[in-house]
């Protein structure tokens, strides 16, 4: 599958979660918090804590531990609170 992480191509397997993909790519954090700019990554791993948020295909606030990668996904770091990207 062809997936990009912050613009870089990344190998992905079917069934892999976005969090697993990022961890496999040696990323431990992929969001920073909106007040303190603190780095965040996986925490509860089962969809409860909303710490592992990431932007997928322009949509922010996607839980990396719950989202399964799909071919062509563009995944990027989420900086604080973001608006969805306008799509043409």
């Amino acid at each position: 599958m062809n997936v990009t992480v912050d613009g870089e191509p990344q190998p992905a397997r079917a069934g892999q979660t976005v969090a697993a993909l990022l961890l496999a790519a040696a990323r431990v954090s992929w969001r920073d918090t909106r007040a303190g700019g603190r780095p965040r990554g996986l925490f509860c791993g089962i969809g409860v804590c909303f710490d592992c948020l990431v932007v997928v295909n322009g949509i922010p606030d996607v839980r990396a531990c719950q989202r399964v990668v799909a071919d062509g996904d563009e995944i990027r770091t989420q900086h604080g609170a973001e608006l969805p990207e306008a799509r043409s």
Binding site: T17, A20, G41, L42, F43, C44, G45, I46, C65
Partner: peptide
Amino acid sequence: PGVVTAGAAQALAKGQ
């Protein structure tokens, strides 16, 4: 980052 719940480590190991 790197501090996770036990359940997270378990889900990641068993599921991924």
